[in-house]
Amino acid sequence: MKPFISLDWGTSSFRAYEVNAEGKVVNQTSAPEGILAVKDQKFEETLETHIGSWDKSLPVIASGMITSRQGWVECAYAECPADASALAKSITTKTTTSARNIHFITGLHYESPSIGHDVIRGEETQVFGALATGAKHFITPGTHSKWIDVENAQVIGFATYMTGESFALYKNNSILGRLMQDGPQDDKAFARGIEKAFSDPAALLHQLFSVRTLGLFNDLPPESLASYLSGLLVGQEVAHATIGHDQSAAYLVLASPALGAAYITALKLAGLDVKLGDPLCAIDGQRLIAHEAGLI
């Protein structure tokens, strides 16, 4: 294969990696400049601010929300089930004014039996980069967590949970946050929230008020309330997402150790088999898809 630049550009973060012909990262940069932070659609200017000194002859393989309606180039979703070759056939290419060739990998659409339509952009690339693990169930935590199922190297379906965004909304914009104080992660409070959610997964709207009452009656200190709230939300997500799954099924969490730790804890408390995957697996996924497309 040939060297390339991997561009993982999401809603809140920008990450770029220079990858050599052996698939090793030789240069990298990141910034809290996701697509929503880019003003007036100045995506090329933002890109060159971060990688302007990198070889312009290298193909740039891009995935994530950069291909969404709010991104640089909107790419139509590919349909599930889909393998790497299906995404390779859907690549959209743009040549910038600085003469870079950027190849945008689109996301996937799934006709969800529960919500009608579900979509992902970027997470499918992570999954294709982690296929060698042999896992069939993948979790990508974040603002919108994704639970992705794979069979025969195809993404056959997935489900989105607005857990991260819900946590931020409850903490910052509801009465639940009024008693909270900043503090380190409280693992015991987090586990308490998970176990409360597991006790009755359908009772989340009722259980949420306990974030306030546990604080009012000093059952939890103010600096532990956020951890408890996080446990409630992650616990409810895990309880729902694993309904009907074989209890012996193996799950792979695709995230940094810090972000993935909460889900590792929650799945282990549920008695499930879970491991942490490679945080940079999106690069391998992009490499696979781009090679299928004959780009590298």
Rank of each mutant, 00 (worst) to 15 (best):
M1L: 14
S6G: 10
L7Q: 11
A16W: 03
V25I: 12
S30Y: 11
I35L: 06
A37N: 09
V38A: 04
V38N: 03
T46Y: 09
S53A: 08
W54M: 12
S57C: 05
L58P: 14
L58C: 02
V60I: 00
V60T: 00
M65Q: 07
S68N: 02
Q70I: 00
V73S: 01
V73I: 08
A78G: 04
A78W: 03
D83R: 11
D83A: 05
A86V: 04
L87M: 09
A88L: 08
S90D: 07
K94C: 04
T95Q: 06
T97S: 12
S98A: 00
N101M: 10
I105E: 02
L108V: 06
P113H: 00
Q126H: 05
A132V: 07
A132L: 06
T133H: 07
T133N: 07
T143K: 07
W147C: 10
I148A: 15
D149V: 12
N152K: 15
N152I: 15
Q154P: 05
F158L: 04
S166H: 05
N173T: 07
I175Q: 14
R178Y: 02
L179W: 04
D182Q: 00
D182N: 11
Q185W: 06
D187I: 05
K188T: 15
D200V: 02
A203T: 02
A203K: 14
L208R: 13
L208G: 11
V211D: 14
T213V: 07
D219W: 10
L220K: 05
P221L: 00
S230G: 14
A239Q: 04
A239T: 09
H240D: 15
T242E: 06
A249D: 11
Y251H: 11
L254A: 08
P257T: 02
L259R: 09
G260V: 01
A262Q: 13
Y263V: 10
A266T: 12
K268Q: 13
L269H: 14
D273R: 11
V274M: 10
K275G: 04
I283Y: 03
I283A: 01
E292A: 08
A293T: 04
